Computed example of a mutant assay.
Amino acid sequence: MLVGPPGSGKSTVGAALAALLAVPLHDTDAAVEAATGRTVSDIFVEDGEAAFRALERAEVARAVAEEEGVLALGGGAPVDPVTQEVLAGQVVVFLDVGIADAAKRVGFDQSRPLLAVNPRASWVRLMNERRPVYERLATHRVDTAGRTPEDVASEVAGLLGAS
Protein backbone atom coordinates (compact mmCIF):
# COMPACT_ATOMS: atom_id res chain seq x y z
CA MET A 1 0.00 0.00 0.00
CA LEU A 2 1.10 3.56 -0.70
CA VAL A 3 1.22 6.34 1.88
CA GLY A 4 2.56 9.88 1.78
CA PRO A 5 1.67 13.55 1.86
CA PRO A 6 -0.48 15.42 -0.64
CA GLY A 7 1.43 15.65 -3.91
CA SER A 8 3.63 12.61 -3.34
CA GLY A 9 1.89 10.73 -6.16
CA LYS A 10 -0.10 8.09 -4.29
CA SER A 11 -2.96 8.03 -6.80
CA THR A 12 -0.85 8.59 -9.93
CA VAL A 13 1.97 6.24 -8.95
CA GLY A 14 -0.63 3.80 -7.68
CA ALA A 15 -2.26 3.70 -11.11
CA ALA A 16 1.12 3.21 -12.82
CA LEU A 17 2.11 0.51 -10.32
CA ALA A 18 -1.21 -1.31 -10.68
CA ALA A 19 -0.83 -1.26 -14.48
CA LEU A 20 2.76 -2.52 -14.21
CA LEU A 21 1.74 -5.35 -11.89
CA ALA A 22 -1.52 -6.04 -13.78
CA VAL A 23 -3.56 -5.72 -10.58
CA PRO A 24 -6.38 -3.37 -9.53
CA LEU A 25 -5.83 0.00 -7.85
CA HIS A 26 -7.97 0.91 -4.86
CA ASP A 27 -7.77 4.56 -3.77
CA THR A 28 -9.38 5.05 -0.35
CA ASP A 29 -10.24 8.72 -0.95
CA ALA A 30 -11.97 7.80 -4.22
CA ALA A 31 -13.80 4.97 -2.44
CA VAL A 32 -15.08 7.33 0.27
CA GLU A 33 -16.23 9.75 -2.41
CA ALA A 34 -17.99 6.98 -4.34
CA ALA A 35 -19.69 5.64 -1.21
CA THR A 36 -20.94 9.05 -0.06
CA GLY A 37 -21.56 10.69 -3.42
CA ARG A 38 -19.56 13.70 -2.19
CA THR A 39 -16.00 14.93 -2.56
CA VAL A 40 -13.55 14.72 0.31
CA SER A 41 -13.52 18.52 0.34
CA ASP A 42 -17.33 18.66 0.64
CA ILE A 43 -17.30 16.16 3.51
CA PHE A 44 -14.69 18.27 5.33
CA VAL A 45 -16.65 21.49 4.82
CA GLU A 46 -20.14 20.12 5.50
CA ASP A 47 -19.46 17.50 8.20
CA GLY A 48 -15.99 18.34 9.53
CA GLU A 49 -12.67 16.56 9.54
CA ALA A 50 -13.69 14.11 12.29
CA ALA A 51 -16.57 12.81 10.16
CA PHE A 52 -14.29 12.36 7.16
CA ARG A 53 -11.64 10.59 9.27
CA ALA A 54 -14.26 8.14 10.56
CA LEU A 55 -15.30 7.30 6.99
CA GLU A 56 -11.65 7.03 5.97
CA ARG A 57 -10.78 4.78 8.93
CA ALA A 58 -13.62 2.40 8.07
CA GLU A 59 -12.68 2.34 4.38
CA VAL A 60 -9.00 1.64 5.04
CA ALA A 61 -9.87 -1.24 7.38
CA ARG A 62 -12.31 -2.66 4.84
CA ALA A 63 -9.90 -2.24 1.94
CA VAL A 64 -6.96 -3.86 3.74
CA ALA A 65 -9.17 -6.85 4.59
CA GLU A 66 -10.99 -7.18 1.27
CA GLU A 67 -9.23 -5.48 -1.66
CA GLU A 68 -6.58 -6.99 -3.89
CA GLY A 69 -3.82 -5.12 -5.67
CA VAL A 70 -2.39 -1.68 -4.98
CA LEU A 71 -3.96 0.32 -2.17
CA ALA A 72 -3.44 4.11 -2.14
CA LEU A 73 -4.31 5.70 1.21
CA GLY A 74 -5.31 9.30 1.76
CA GLY A 75 -2.46 11.40 3.15
CA GLY A 76 -3.88 11.64 6.66
CA ALA A 77 -5.11 8.06 6.98
CA PRO A 78 -1.93 6.64 8.56
CA VAL A 79 -2.02 9.22 11.36
CA ASP A 80 -5.10 7.57 12.87
CA PRO A 81 -4.09 5.13 15.68
CA VAL A 82 -6.70 2.55 14.65
CA THR A 83 -5.47 2.69 11.06
CA GLN A 84 -1.89 2.30 12.28
CA GLU A 85 -2.93 -0.97 13.91
CA VAL A 86 -4.57 -2.10 10.66
CA LEU A 87 -1.36 -1.28 8.74
CA ALA A 88 0.91 -3.15 11.16
CA GLY A 89 2.47 -6.10 9.39
CA GLN A 90 1.44 -4.85 5.93
CA VAL A 91 3.86 -3.85 3.18
CA VAL A 92 3.73 -0.05 3.26
CA VAL A 93 5.58 2.17 0.78
CA PHE A 94 6.12 5.77 1.87
CA LEU A 95 6.18 8.01 -1.21
CA ASP A 96 8.29 10.92 -0.04
CA VAL A 97 8.38 14.33 -1.73
CA GLY A 98 9.51 17.86 -0.98
CA ILE A 99 7.29 20.91 -1.03
CA ALA A 100 8.56 22.17 -4.41
CA ASP A 101 7.45 19.03 -6.23
CA ALA A 102 4.28 18.68 -4.17
CA ALA A 103 3.28 22.25 -5.04
CA LYS A 104 3.71 21.57 -8.76
CA ARG A 105 1.59 18.45 -8.53
CA VAL A 106 -1.32 19.58 -6.38
CA GLY A 107 -1.32 23.29 -7.05
CA PHE A 108 -2.55 23.78 -3.48
CA ASP A 109 -6.10 24.35 -4.68
CA GLN A 110 -9.41 24.22 -2.84
CA SER A 111 -9.81 20.46 -3.42
CA ARG A 112 -7.26 19.98 -0.62
CA PRO A 113 -9.21 21.08 2.47
CA LEU A 114 -6.32 20.91 4.91
CA LEU A 115 -4.25 23.09 2.60
CA ALA A 116 -6.89 25.72 1.85
CA VAL A 117 -5.46 28.41 4.16
CA ASN A 118 -1.78 29.31 3.60
CA PRO A 119 -1.18 26.13 1.59
CA ARG A 120 2.62 26.05 1.67
CA ALA A 121 2.82 26.58 5.43
CA SER A 122 -0.02 24.09 5.95
CA TRP A 123 1.74 21.45 3.82
CA VAL A 124 5.00 21.91 5.75
CA ARG A 125 3.13 21.67 9.07
CA LEU A 126 1.26 18.54 7.95
CA MET A 127 4.46 16.94 6.72
CA ASN A 128 6.31 17.72 9.94
CA GLU A 129 3.47 16.07 11.89
CA ARG A 130 3.06 13.09 9.59
CA ARG A 131 6.64 12.25 8.51
CA PRO A 132 7.47 10.30 11.71
CA VAL A 133 4.31 8.21 11.25
CA TYR A 134 4.99 7.55 7.55
CA GLU A 135 8.58 6.57 8.35
CA ARG A 136 7.60 4.31 11.26
CA LEU A 137 4.95 2.46 9.25
CA ALA A 138 6.98 2.19 6.05
CA THR A 139 8.48 -1.03 4.86
CA HIS A 140 10.09 1.00 2.05
CA ARG A 141 10.66 4.71 1.35
CA VAL A 142 10.78 6.03 -2.22
CA ASP A 143 11.61 9.63 -3.13
CA THR A 144 9.27 10.81 -5.89
CA ALA A 145 10.78 14.27 -6.40
CA GLY A 146 11.53 15.10 -10.02
CA ARG A 147 10.58 11.62 -11.20
CA THR A 148 7.88 10.28 -13.51
CA PRO A 149 5.13 8.13 -12.02
CA GLU A 150 6.31 5.25 -14.21
CA ASP A 151 9.88 5.51 -12.86
CA VAL A 152 8.63 5.55 -9.27
CA ALA A 153 6.25 2.64 -9.96
CA SER A 154 9.13 0.66 -11.44
CA GLU A 155 11.24 1.26 -8.32
CA VAL A 156 8.36 0.26 -6.05
CA ALA A 157 7.77 -2.90 -8.10
CA GLY A 158 11.46 -3.74 -7.72
CA LEU A 159 11.32 -3.22 -3.97
CA LEU A 160 8.31 -5.53 -3.83
CA GLY A 161 10.23 -8.16 -5.81
CA ALA A 162 7.84 -7.88 -8.75
CA SER A 163 10.16 -6.66 -11.49
Rank of each mutant, 00 (worst) to 15 (best):
R62V: 04
P6R: 12
H140V: 02
V142C: 06
P5V: 10
V40A: 11
D109S: 14
R57W: 07
N128P: 00
V60P: 12
F94I: 00
A100T: 13
R57L: 09
A88S: 12
G9M: 02
K104E: 15
L114G: 15
G9L: 01
D29Q: 06
F52A: 10
L126K: 07
D29E: 06
P119E: 07
A102I: 07
K10P: 06
G74P: 07
V117F: 07
A22R: 15
L55G: 08
P6S: 13
T83L: 03
D109M: 06
M1E: 03
E150Y: 02
T39R: 14
V32I: 13
V124I: 14
E155G: 04
A15H: 07
L115R: 09
H26C: 13
R136S: 12
G37L: 09
E33H: 03
T36Y: 01
Q90I: 00
G76M: 12
A65F: 04
E155P: 03
A162K: 15
V97L: 01
Q110F: 05
S163Q: 09
Q84T: 02
L95R: 00
S41W: 00
N128R: 15
A138F: 11
P78C: 13
I99Q: 13
A145Q: 11
A61Y: 03
A16E: 10
F94N: 03
L71V: 08
V124S: 13
R136M: 07
G75Y: 09
Q84I: 03
A51E: 14
D27K: 03
V91Q: 12
T39M: 05
V124P: 00
D96V: 00
E155K: 04
V93I: 05
D143G: 01
E68G: 11
A72G: 13
A145K: 01
G76N: 05
V82D: 14
F44L: 02
V60K: 12
G48E: 02
L21H: 06
E68N: 09
L17Y: 07
A138L: 07
G14C: 05
N118K: 12
T28A: 06
E56L: 07
L17G: 08
V86M: 10
G14V: 01
Q90W: 00
P78R: 12
A65D: 14
A102G: 05
F44I: 01
V70I: 12
E150G: 01
G74V: 07
R136L: 10
Q110R: 15
V152A: 08
A54R: 15
L71S: 05
D80E: 14
V92A: 06
N118Y: 00
R120L: 08
T139R: 14
L87K: 11
D143M: 05
A19T: 09
E135D: 12
L17E: 09
